[in-house]
Structures are given as C-alpha cells and as structure tokens.
Write a protein that binds this DNA or RNA. Structure first.
Lengths: 214, 214, 214, 214
DNA sequence: AATGAATGAGGGTTCATTCAT
DNA sequence: TATGAATGAACCCTCATTCAT
C-alpha cells in the first residue's frame, strides 16, 4: 500500500509510531467519541508524549481523517484486487458486500469510528463524500453497469440510485450493528441483504424462484 | 401531535419561544455544525438572550435532541395517519418513502441536522437508536410483514434485514443529497429507489416486467 | 425595637413578608452557604416570587446584612435591659455570657449564619466590625471597667484586651459548637468559660478557692 | 517541612511555580476576597498563564485550601519544635501565643486570608475544623493537662473549654487586628492576653500578685 | 526525534436583577 | 404590591497546540 504518511513533513524513520498512534486513536475515539477524546489520551494510549503526536499528524482532525484514509485505501485496494479475480458481476457484488461487512465486523472499534465518529460534522463528511465515498460509490456503480452489459442486471435500472441503495444498506447494517446492544455477526447479514438487493421484495420473483426450485 | 415542550420545566407561557429557538438552532447547527455552534449564536438567531435558551432547554445537547424528538414525533404521527388511509402494503411503502424524502427535501437545514449533526457521537446515536429509529424500523417491518400476509411480498423474506435495507437506502439518499454539491430534488429519487427495493436489480424480473408491459 | 425595614423604600404594609424572607434566608444560607444559595431559593422557601424579595431588600447582600442587624439589635436591646436589672459586675458578665450562648444555642441555623456565613468576606466583616461588634465589645469593656471601679476586677487589667478575650472565647465556643459533629448544649459551656475568664488557669487561685470552700 | 506539593499530580519540576501561585493567591484573595477574585487575577499576579494554575491546583477552592494547609503545616511544625525545647508549661503557652500572633502579625495578607477568607463557608470551615484546627486545639489542651500534672495550672480546670478560650482569644485578637483601621502591633497583645488567660480577671489574684511583687 | 510543561483562547452555564403585566 | 419570564454579564475550566530542552 502506498504511504499514507503526512507529506508535508520530512520523511520519518519508519518506527511504527504512526501506526501505533492511529491504532490508539481508534481505540480512544471509539471509547469516548472524537469530540470527547483528548489528544493526550491518544498519546498516553500510544505510549508517546503529547507533542510526539504532532510530529506525525498536523492536528487532532488530521488523526481522524488519517484513520479514514488509511483503512479506506487498504480496503479499496483489497477490494479491487478481489474483484479483478472474477468476471461475474453478481459475484463481484457478493464480494463487495461480504468484504464490507466482514472488515467492519472484525474490528468493532474501527466500525464505531467509521459509522459514528467520522460523521461528526459536515466538515469531515464533505471531505469523505468528496473523495473516497464517491470513489466507492463509483466502484459499485461500475459493477452494476458491467452487469447490465452482461445482461445480469436489468438494463433500465437507475445505477446511480441502485449504487446508493446498496451503499446505504451496507452502511445501515453496520451502524445498526454498532449501536445495537444485541451481539450478532455483522457478516451474517450479507446474504439476506444481497437477497433483497438482487431480487427485490416483490412476490412474483419469489414465486418464480420457488418454481425454479422445483 | 402531543406536546413536545420540556416536561422537566414548569408550564410556560406558550409564546412560541420554544419553537423559535428550535428553528434557530436548526439553522445555526446546519450552518456551522453542532460542535462549532455557540449557544449564543442560537440565542441571537432566535432574538432572545443567552439565558433564555436555558429556560426552555436543559443544555446545548438538549437542543439537538429536542430537534430530533420534535420533528421525529411530527413525522411519525403524520406517517402513521397517512398509512392508515390505505390497505395496500405497496402503497404504504410508497408513502413512507415519499414522505421521508419529501420531508427532508423540503428543508435542507433540517436535513443537514438529521443526516449529519445528529450522528455527532455515540452519545446521541444511542439515544436515537434506542428509541425513535427503532420505532421507525419497526413501522417499516410491520408493513413488510403485512405485505407478506397479503401475498404482496415474498414470504421467505428476512423482514428485519429488508427494513434496514430500506431505511439505509433512504438515509443514504438523504445524506448524499445533503453533501452533494449538485442541486437536485431529493423527492425525485423516491421512485427509482422503490423500483430497486421492490423489484431488486436482477434481470429476470426486468424481463417479466417488460413482458407484462407488452 | 426600632424598625429594621429598608429605609430607602416607602413604608410597607406590615404583612410579615419581611420577617418571612429573613427567616427563610437564615434557613437557606445555613443549609447551603451564602455564596451557594440563590435568591430564588430564599424566595421559594418564603413562598414569594423572586421579584418580591427585591421589594423588601436592596439586593442579596442586603439580606445577609439585615439578618445580622435584625438579630443583633434584638440581642443588644435584650442584653442591655437585662444588665440594667443588676449592679453586680460579675453578675453582668455572667448574664452576657449566658445570653450570648443561649441565644445562639437555641437556633442552630442562626448560629451557622452568624458564626460562618457572616464571615464570608472582608466586605461584610468590615461592616460588622465597624458597627455592632465594636458596640458589643464596648459593652463588655464598660462592664469590666465598672467592675474595676467596684473593686471586683483587677485594676491593672487591660480591659480592651480582656473584652476581646471574652468575645473571642464566646465566639470560638459558638463556632466550635456549630462545626462539631458532636451534639451538646452550647449553653453548658457558659460556666466553665466564666470560670476560666474570671479566675484564669493559674494554680494559686485554685488553692485559694479550695481554701475558701473549707 | 514535608512536601506540600499536590500529591494527585505527577511529580513536577521544582521551579517554584507552586509557591509563586500560592503567594499570589494570598495577595489577591486578601485584596478582593476569595469569591470576588478571579483565577485569572491570581495567574496574572504570579506571572503565569491561566491554565498553568490548573497544573498545580485542582480548582479555585483547592488554592484556598492549599494556602491553609501549607502555612498551617509550617506553623504546626515550627510550633512543635519550639515547644520541645522547654519543659515549663507556662513557657509553652507563652510560646504558642507569641508564635501565633507574631506569625500572623508579620504578614497582613496571610492574616486576612486566615481570619476572613478561610471562613467563607461551612464547606471550607468543616475541612479545617475536622483536621488542623482540631489538631491545634489538642496541642493546646495537652499543654494545659501537662501543666495540671506539673501543678502549674488548676487541677479542676476544664481543659477542653480552656483550650477553646485561648484559641478563641487568639483568633479574635487576630481578626480584630485585621479589621481594625487602627494600626498596631498584633504581637503586642500577647502579654496582656496571657495575663488574662493565666490569671483571670478577678481581683483577688491581682492582690496576691501585687503582694508577691513587693 | 522526543518530551511534557506551559500556554491562552474560547464557551457553556449560572443567577442576581429587572420590569412589563 | 406581587409576579416570574427574561435578561446578559461574568467566570471557571479545558485542552489543542507550541517550543525550549
């Protein structure tokens, strides 16, 4: 993965402090919320002095943004690599959905930061929306259009809306999992979600499916 | 609609100050973000003194929560009334989707507060999730189950997941609209959304539909 | 007793509100401390509206000062009347000591206000010292000098210091009683106090006393 | 003297800031009264930033309490050391009285804080009464009992009351000095005070004394 | 590179006081 | 006289950030 280190700073020894601070920040932000977390808390959790944080991050906001960029880049890279290994659009969607839910389901703190803390204000939101989320939506959309060309998805489908529907569904699934006091596997919601997305909720399809099952 | 005035305070003259402060807060929070807004800003916008805000709200957080409760109660009440006027489950879903998107699309500031500011922290999120959002998800789910009994929706559908898919889709549509620099009608996404949700994205249904169209 | 009502206000109907507020203030100030008490607390305790307090008192400080003046005048008047009924200087001292301790011992809240809250700041202190406390010290001193003339007290005694010793002893006795978690009768300390003050702590007097007892 | 640095904070560089702030607080509190003084005033007087105060003290109250503890510890330690250098109980009392009055008489601002500001509310008072003042009263009392055993003081004396009489006398002497507009030496009141306390005000002792003087 | 003591701007909140009714 | 809703000045404290070591 490409370096995500601050470019405005001289190259630093790769002594793991950057990652250590990021990981501490995830833990601290998830525990107390971004606005209630103190930079000093993050520093203590990472085992460095307060000032050291500012050698690796421009300011407190930058830590949050860096968490997003770091893990989003990682996820996008892994996702694209995974998609490249199949041609089937349905399988591609399946991989997107599973990867999304499994990745967040694996690290609850990371999920909290992504589903809650990163929504803290329009200031943050706009940055994400303007960049990576759009990129993610475009990735989904390209799969949908590819599927339309392959004849796998309905050709008259509004792929822009459909991409948002899928992303919104994934997002809600994750947010709900994070906020629910019930403890269940986030990944287990992947197939039911895909079922609704691929087949809709309408009866006739169900009829057709059960017919096909016979 | 039931009174939404603070119950923890003695009865106040109904001089509209409560609503005035709420409305000012929506404008101010939408403009600067909840954490960057000062209570003094809200007071000035409402044309009252700083201290007056505390006659109607316990603290700054309480203003935000009250915005949510006030408009959510209003929306739920209107929604339930609307649903009661039809028996068709598909029509009920349509009304939910349209009402949701039209309501937010009508007041951009309110939409910003709902889609962005209210997600500010787990502290807020948990309150909503624990109450009104759950109520909303349950409302959707009951329509889906009703539809299953009527034979309108697939009987083997996971209604819990499907409700979240719909809510997530609505939520994403609104968030995207709020954050996008493009200006379009939020309500116009209602039908494409319903199309995906009701029919899925799969080809076969499309085939059937086009066949029916002939 | 002369009127203690605010002179800067037009004469008010004697409906007991002035005294009611004073008494409520003693209770509230004793319970929470003057600086932690709110005017609204006093008003509620007195069963009047906040604004009504300002019809009887200039401001919050004035309530505290009025408590002092009201009860001090009462005490001084009663004390002087009592002293006038005897010629014996020792008996006069005895009456002063007993009256002081009995009066405060009878009303713990009043004692708290006098021993603690009225010492709140030099602002208050200087007012008292400049007026009533000096008057009280002078009263004691005049009894001592009278006693010297009668030959009851040592003629070379520094009466100024002795008056302060007695007042300080009374004051400390009351403060200690107020702050002690032990519950005892304040008045019961009168005789031991007089013993020390009249006879000192030196041995030889004890010898003489026991000799006299024989 | 034992360290008086805040124990609740990590060890700090011993750069004198703690003492500097304490001394500034004495000056500021004495000048304006505790409740009318702003933390910012104390900081400015000490030549540090507002926030620095909170590196050394928990809050504003803690500054006041720390003044008391710092100087009381110092005084008690010095006092005990002084008492240990003599066996004569009368001489011990003399040293207590002189030390008390000289110490406060030397630093008017400190005296103001001790005699006025520290009495600000039961909240403070109870802390002192519960600890150091009780310790001080006990010290006096132990000297009195020691004196009774040595035959220097009357054996039937109520030492508990006598200790309070002496402390009250010392306290009143100091308070009176602080509030008086006349400027005199506080220490000069030591001997007259001791005279009253040791010999009482009664005539017969005076007679005996004058006889002894011959 | 790393430290952590020091900085100081910033704001939520309280509450004594006023005044229209 | 009495009310109590409204006012707005005042202030303690936090904490992101800096910088001398």
């Amino acid at each position: 993965m490409a370096s995500v280190r601050r470019v405005s700073q001289p190259q630093r020894k790769s002594n793991g402090k950057y990652e250590a601070i990021l990981r501490s920040a995830i833990k601290v932000f998830a525990g107390s919320g971004f606005f209630n977390s103190k930079v000093a808390d993050v520093a203590r959790e990472a085992g460095v002095a307060d000032g050291t944080v500012y050698l690796y991050f421009k300011n407190k906001d930058d830590i949050l943004v860096s968490i997003f960029n770091y893990y989003m880049e990682e996820a996008l890279a892994a996702g694209k690599a995974s998609l490249a290994r199949t041609d089937d659009p349905i399988e591609k969607l399946r991989r997107i959905v599973h990867a999304h839910l499994e990745r967040l389901g694996r690290d609850r703190n990371l999920a909290i930061v992504f589903q809650v803390e990163l929504r803290s204000s329009t200031k943050f939101m706009e940055q994400f929306s303007a960049t990576k989320v759009t990129e993610y939506l475009d990735l989904i959309r390209s799969v949908l259009e590819e599927g339309q060309q392959h004849g796998a998805f309905r050709s008259e489908l509004n792929t822009k809306v459909a991409a948002k529907v899928l992303f919104g569904a994934l997002d809600e699934m994750a947010t709900n999992w994070v906020l629910s006091r019930k403890r269940y596997s986030l990944a287990s919601t992947a197939e039911p979600l895909l079922d609704v997305f691929l087949n809709g909720i309408g009866r006739t399809r169900a009829a057709k499916q059960s017919a096909r099952a016979n």
